[in-house]
Simulated scan of single mutants.
Amino acid sequence: MYPEYIKRSLLLFVVITCFQQFVNAQANYKKITNYRVYYGWAKHYPQDWMITRQFVNDGKSYFLLVNPQTLETKIDEPDFYQVKPMTIEEARTFFKATPYVKALQKAESQSVSTQDAGIESGMPKQTGITLTADLCPSHKPLDKIIFTDIIAEFKKVEHPVPVALSITGIWMRQHPQDLDWLKKMQDEHEIYITWINHSFNHRVSATLPLKENFLLEAGTNINFEVLETEMAMLKNGLLPSVFFRFPGLVSDKKLVYEITDFGLIPVGTDAWLAKGQQPQAGSIVLIHGNGNEPLGVKDFIKLLKSKTKSIAKKQWLLYDLRESVDEEFQGE
């Protein structure tokens, strides 16, 4: 057993850390400059964090950090930590035994496919799914029924309900009211959102073959597509996660490694509902919440209604994407 003074110190640390994460996650960083990839080790007892970004906002320096054990991210000021700058190779070696780095390595090992490279599912022992909804550029409004229905179905067994949203910079710009509604649902603890980087422009051509389409289109600036989206998230009060979803699920090996060099884990799917793919235990399900895929939304609502009794008995749940991926690599 720990002495009482150590218990009190640990409790105070937890309270302070939770408060800082809450404040930082809700902050809107409106005056960002020098936003860049920056790797390093940041320690504040008892937790080691991996630094992935550095930026300045209104004259103050900040880090974007990831907990390599849980895949949680946060924004914090450097002065709170013991800091050691590293190259990407040094950082990945230092944290090589963690679920975060193992997930990056798995995504790289699955980089050959033109479509759906990256992490496609969580642990098959899970009695439920991880829901991901993509918010690609669209002139149509947000499909709010997705969120109101999962809140209604899960209110007695999961609260808030976890959902991962793949968001583009263009969608944020086009739909400020819908974005505010999502933030309000999160602020009211109805849903818990993991924000996935889905590129800024989500370029797509109706005529180009897949190997030359989406982010593989000639002239694509991958630094802009990734970092500008993260800055837009921060300016809108969203906390970037460690995940990335390729537009159209299209990539090649070179692009996958470019994304993992940003410290981002590509997330695919093994159940794109609008394409008739049926979810299994532990599936990462894909639907579009941007109004452009009514069939996928309809199929998801149908799936949800079919699981009403199982949900009530906690035999079919929605999983946090971070926990789902983290669990797969714990103990390896």
Rank of each mutant, 00 (worst) to 15 (best):
S166K: 05
I191T: 12
K211Y: 13
D134K: 02
P160V: 10
A218M: 08
N221L: 08
W195C: 00
T207G: 06
I150Q: 02
S138F: 00
V204Y: 13
H189S: 15
A133Q: 12
K156P: 05
Q186L: 09
E188S: 11
R203L: 05
F154K: 07
K156D: 15
V204L: 05
I150A: 00
A152V: 07
T207L: 09
D180M: 12
S138R: 07
T132H: 11
K140W: 04
W195N: 05
P176I: 06
F154Y: 09
R173G: 07
P162E: 11
E212P: 08
I191N: 05
I196D: 05
S199W: 06
M172I: 03
I222H: 10
D187K: 15
L179F: 04
H159S: 15
K155Y: 07
L182D: 09
A133S: 15
P176L: 03
D187C: 11
K211P: 03
I196F: 09
H139V: 09
I146H: 01
G219I: 09
N221G: 05
T229R: 04
A152S: 12
N213C: 04
H175I: 02
Q174T: 09
H139T: 13
F147Q: 02
E230N: 01
I151E: 11
D180T: 12
N201H: 15
I170W: 03
E190F: 08
L216T: 07
D187F: 13
Q126F: 13
Q174H: 12
N213P: 01
S205A: 00
L215G: 03
K156Y: 14
S166E: 15
W181K: 03
G169R: 06
